[in-house]
Nucleic acid binder design. Structure first.
Lengths: 252, 252
DNA sequence: CGTATAGTTGATTAGTATCAACGCTAGTGG
DNA sequence: CCACTAGCGTTGATACTAATCAACTATACG
């Protein structure tokens, strides 16, 4: 929020890592990313060619990557860190469209510009690909296009589930769904089910679930009192009763 | 609702129009569809090849085309009529994901099956394409893949706007947005801005906007009392004050 | 150590849901 | 042709969930 009027750091500026050192300690992480991000399913050769059009950057927390309405010029892939995407109403009401983590990509859009603002939550390491270059690469690499398409479909499926949550679930069900999804996402990344890391603020969670900070806080406290979760700190959540949480998320 | 346990009509069964007569009175409509649906941007030759894998059907109102979880085997394009897509919670709470009209396509999904149920609202004429055949066509026709991709992106953008509506807008704003969007959609199809046709029931509108029937009804009545809209019948809505409606939709 | 920010908790309000009744419309069958 | 019925839409009374307003506590930061 505080960075809303800060101009975006240039990827070619001082915060950039110009060379990806594939033998660095981050290598293992890169492999994981390759499995999940849009490099997956591509041959070694294809990945190398993708690498020629990419650019890295390490950004601080609360850094605005681009704003809703900006010209759609790049696609981003998160190597490491956490990003939130949101839309605003003129009076400041905010809806967070999604939280993204390592391996996720974002930056699709139409000729009307990006349809959301993207902002880092934690310090984040990003890969950036220019749409222009990506487009010409896609001409030669149909599998890349396939990959982009299937990712768009996945995003769409996620968006539709979130519509069900926002339109029809209670506060408890919303929070339960949020925790279950975060935990499942973590497991896919090789993390344990519990505790779940909550790098985002309560305000962010509220704006993601269509609630207020107070309601989110109260709901957490309530779930804690019922021994369904534990809150060792505001940034971590222990899932004590996975089954109950899952049922609650499904609305039963 | 009443057709929930009715087995889907087979496209190869008695309700099928096996041959598309391009010189029929529907021809003009077909042209319009070609502009909007995924045949747009394709050459005459490409459209012909698409035609070889397609299949037509005329379905009655309230007919379930496929259900959430069904194996994803076809993509559908609406020639004529109206369709709603929805998701259900185990206890029956429903969220309508979208209303679709002439020229719209639907039927994207993952290996987990379709992520929503599709049901006709009015009697509807559909085109159906098998995913399998479409996939092999896409190998040869990159533009077709492009087209599918850009349509998925458009759907995604729409889903994200709906998230903002569901999470952060008031009942009045929701209804105003709904009417504005419907009117704009109509204009794209060459219809006048007003009156807007409302082929769907109040219950459908409610489940689309995350409200109850009663709230939708009351909100319509209220807008009518304020002379912003007129309701000559429950199926039509006259937009008297476009600017106010638009502002209301944007939340100002 | 002091200040600013984030998170929690409490009291009250407001907006929408729920429950209930009634009117309208369209289709049905006598 | 018209009364009958069923479903949809509207309206009213009340309840309840979550929002708002406000105070306080915990945490992070300089």
């Amino acid at each position: 929020m505080g960075s809303l009027h800060m101009p975006p750091l240039d990827f070619d500026g001082h915060k950039i890592d110009h060379v990806a050192n594939l033998k660095s300690p981050q290598c293992r992480n890169c492999d994981i990313v390759r499995e999940i991000a849009f490099c997956a399913d591509l041959s070694h050769d294809e990945v190398s060619r993708l690498a020629t059009v990419r650019c890295h950057a390490t950004l601080p927390a609360s850094f605005t990557i681009f704003r809703e309405g900006d010209v759609v010029d790049h696609v981003y892939s998160i190597s490491n860190g956490a990003v939130k995407l949101y839309k605003l109403l003129p009076d400041g009401r905010r809806q967070i469209i999604g939280f993204l983590f390592s391996g996720d990509i974002f930056g699709l859009g139409t000729h009307d510009g990006y349809c959301y603002t993207a902002e880092t939550i934690t310090p984040t390491h990003l890969c950036r690909f220019s749409h222009r270059k990506l487009d010409s690469l896609m001409e030669e690499m149909p599998r890349l296009e396939r990959r982009m398409f299937s990712m768009a479909v996945k995003e769409l499926v996620a968006a539709q589930e979130q519509m069900l949550l926002l339109g029809r679930k209670t506060a408890r069900e919303k929070v339960a769904t949020f925790l279950v999804k975060l935990a499942e996402r973590g497991v896919k990344m090789g993390l344990p089910t519990s505790p779940v890391a909550l790098p985002m603020s309560r305000a962010d969670i509220a704006d993601y679930l269509g609630l207020t900070v107070e309601t989110v806080s109260r709901t957490f406290t309530q779930l804690k009192r019922d021994n369904i979760i534990g809150l060792p700190s505001s940034g971590h959540c222990v899932l004590n009763d996975w089954d109950t949480l899952r049922e609650m998320a499904e609305g039963t």
